[in-house]
């Protein structure tokens, strides 16, 4: 029948018929993607399973995700950190967990040097905000102005159609990055070539330049307020909040520069003075060498285990009970001036 003879109702019916295969494909993708384990769903499930017993919660960005192995802390602990995570999400996630973690005794935020000036919404990975809204049910840093945010209602939109098709072709595999049961992402000790490229001065310069360019004064105001509010809630329960810098390579430190470091340090001191946040600083600790790093600001498995032991013995020991009795795993530590 020529289309000119079609009445409007019949056209509507044909449109529905036309859409049917697309709806079937979409439904199949949604069903498959709903079962895909990603780092967010894995952490929601993982921390949910240990909530009643957990004593230490660790959080932060990818640096903390890779650098702190909860199993090395000698008490039940969980690593909530994730790639590109920002303080907004650290604080929001912890806030949802405080009431349901009766044995919680310490919270550790393992921060990169620029953490207090960073927000996810200003980064190229702003798309990750939707994952927090979907899996953690925490509000986005930068809520969209639209009435409907499709990423929060469709897994295909959340993962993007090309990625959804790719996962479908692979049989919807887990994409959680090889997390351990307690939320740590161990990075292998890289081959000499990979290690060299991760510490390559040009790459490090560009990497740090990206961090410096993404630092925002308005982000600092929001971040300081979020940490202060979290600290207040934790203080009410008698749980100390530790905030400190993780080790970075010498090249990263050099590129970051003394002015930016002093500015960040000043903000950390404000947190300590105003909110009772306890600070630590391993960013220039000579006990960590290039062989401990995967790249300039991410530790490999060996470096992570080394740092975890240091955190356990030097930072968390005063609050953990029974006292940590394991023998020191390192040679005697040189004084770290900023360490509490």
């Amino acid at each position: 029948m020529p289309s000119s003879e079609l009445p409007v109702q019949r056209v509507a019916g044909r449109i529905l018929l036309f859409c049917a295969p697309l709806l079937v494909l979409g439904g199949w993708l949604e069903r498959g993607l709903a079962g895909v384990e990603n780092s967010y769903s894995a952490k929601v499930r993982g921390v949910g399973a240990v909530m009643k017993d957990v004593e230490v919660l660790v959080t932060g960005g990818s640096g903390a995700l890779d650098a702190i192995d909860p199993s090395g802390l000698s008490v039940p602990a969980y690593n909530l950190a994730n790639a590109s995570q920002s303080l907004h999400y650290d604080c929001a996630i912890l806030s949802t967990l405080i009431e349901d973690t009766p044995k919680l005794r310490a919270v550790v935020i393992g921060a990169p040097l620029w953490y207090l000036s960073k927000e996810l919404k200003n980064s190229p990975e702003a798309w990750r905000q939707h994952f927090y809204a979907v899996f953690w049910r925490v509000p986005m840093e930068d809520p969209p102005k639209s009435f409907i945010t499709i990423q929060q209602h469709s897994y295909t939109a959340l993962y993007t159609p090309p990625a959804a098709m790719e996962y479908a072709a692979a049989g919807f595999p887990p994409i959680d990055g090889g997390l351990t049961a307690d939320g740590w992402e161990p990075l292998e000790v890289p081959s000499p070539e990979v290690a060299a490229s991760g510490l390559d001065p040009i790459w490090v310069r560009q990497h740090v330049a990206g961090h410096l360019a993404a630092m925002r004064t308005e982000s600092e105001v929001r971040n300081l307020a979020a940490v202060a509010a979290l600290s207040e809630r934790l203080n009410e329960r008698g749980v100390p909040l530790y905030f400190g810098w993780l080790p970075v390579s010498a090249g990263y430190n050099a590129e970051f520069g003394p002015d930016a470091r002093a500015h960040q340090r000043q903000m950390m001191e404000r947190l300590k003075a105003d909110s009772g946040v306890r600070l630590f600083d391993y960013s220039t600790d000579p006990r960590f060498s290039d062989s401990d790093f995967y790249n300039a600001d991410h530790m490999n498995r060996v470096g992570a285990q080394k740092l975890t032991a240091v955190l356990r013995d030097e930072v968390l020991a005063p609050v953990l009970s029974p006292p940590v009795l394991s023998p020191p795993v390192l040679s005697p530590a040189p004084p770290t001036p900023a360490l509490e």
């Binding site: 289309s3 000119s4 003879e5 079609l6 009445p7 409007v8 019949r10 056209v11 449109i15």
Partner: peptide, 13 residues
């Protein structure tokens, strides 16, 4: 007419 309107809907899509 309804026919033309229907044709326009298809064409519009």
């Amino acid at each position: 007419s309804p026919d033309v309107r229907a044709e326009r809907i298809v064409s519009g899509l």
